[in-house]
């Protein structure tokens, strides 16, 4: 629930469930489904040995990027850590190019030279895909600095996890962001576990939305499994930042269904915990239930939508499987400009 709303404009939604129109529900459903199916496929391809190294799946957290993206506008920058596939799909990057990067192929977004954790798009202003926990927070603050320097009205959407929230540079960034009132929204994706360590075992205080208090940065905790709540809070936060009031923190209470990475058996939490999140709080099922209840879609139509999404993902997987590896000559290209 929103705890603090400095940007009062949207405060009227407090207490009421912010509603989606039919089109918004359908959009959110399809986008979240695409991320879910893409990640399931990526998991499968990892199992087949087609994807190497680390592979961090976003399954369970889909509502966060979807809701935030719905509240943003073209030109806003975004940056995140290594669990980045969903962030790229939501800004419209080609699933084929994302999947081909996972398999390390020529047609990958980074020509196969980045991998799962390192993809970028100047066009969509997506700045990675950063593998060092917390580094994206300083970088994202720099994106906001550039917006302010150039007097652009864009906002930096800087995502990081509950694990990164304990890194020192996060607070160095908070300090400068508020000192200079930079247009940045810090979106903490609290999925409860930093790899295998629960937030309670890692943090002296666990309400991460308050981590900006000593810097004067407002924050709120948001139900990150409900895309409507996410969008509503993100609108408030983005407006706050865009209007020159400085940074804003959104702590998204979310959950990842899978292990930290593909090689994590997730023994540090109970099966019941995972199962209850999946059966009671699933972000996609919530939208699906509302679509059916409002008779905005039939089971049949949703099935068709699922088929379409599967087709997109299959095409991406086929491309990523058959696309050639980068030419050997790529080894020495793009080290410097």
């Amino acid at each position: 629930m929103p705890k603090k709303t400095d940007a009062a404009a949207k405060a009227s939604t407090k207490g009421n469930m912010p509603a989606f129109t039919k089109e918004e529900e359908l959009y959110a459903y399809k986008e979240m489904l695409l991320i879910r199916r893409f990640e399931e496929k990526a998991g499968q391809m990892y199992g087949m040995g087609l994807i190497g190294g680390f592979c961090h799946l976003y399954i369970g957290q889909e509502a966060v990027v979807t809701g935030v993206h719905m509240a943003s506008k073209k030109g806003d920058a975004s940056i995140t850590g290594y669990r980045d596939h969903g962030h790229m799909l939501i800004v419209g990057l080609d699933p084929k190019a994302v999947m081909a990067e996972l398999t390390g192929r020529k047609g990958g977004l980074s020509k196969g030279k980045g991998g799962s954790m390192h993809m970028f798009s100047n066009e969509e202003r997506f700045y990675g895909g950063n593998g060092i926990v917390g580094a994206q927070v300083s970088l994202g603050t720099g994106l906001a600095f550039a917006a302010k320097y150039r007097e652009e009205d864009t906002v930096s959407l800087t995502y990081f996890g509950d694990g990164a929230a304990n890194q020192g540079q996060v607070y160095e960034s908070f300090n400068m962001a508020k000192l200079w009132n930079l247009p940045v929204v810090y979106i903490i994706e609290n999925n409860k576990y930093a790899m295998g360590t629960s937030l309670e075992r890692a943090a002296s205080t666990t309400d991460l939305s308050k981590r900006g208090e000593s810097f004067g940065i407002p924050g709120e905790q948001v139900d990150g499994m409900d895309v409507r709540m996410v969008r509503d809070a993100a609108e408030r936060a983005i407006q706050h930042a865009r209007e020159g009031n400085g940074p804003y923190i959104l702590e998204m209470l979310t959950y990842r269904y899978r292990g930290h990475s593909m090689s994590d058996p997730a023994k540090y939490r109970s099966k019941d915990e995972v199962q209850s999140m999946r059966s009671e709080r699933d972000p996609i099922e919530q939208v699906k239930a509302r679509l059916l209840e409002n008779e905005w879609a039939t089971e049949e139509e949703l099935k068709d939508m699922d088929k379409d999404v599967r087709a997109i993902v299959s095409e991406a997987a086929d491309f990523a499987t058959n696309d050639p590896e980068p030419d050997a000559d790529e080894l020495y290209t793009e080290i410097t400009v």
Binding site: I79, Y127, A135, V137, S138, L139, G140, T141, G142, L143, A144, F145, A146, Y149, S156, G168, Q169, E172, S173, N175, M176
Partner: peptide
């Protein structure tokens, strides 16, 4: 650490 990262982001 913070301002070096901020600079790189900019």
């Amino acid at each position: 650490h913070g301002f070096a990262g901020l600079g790189v982001g900019a």
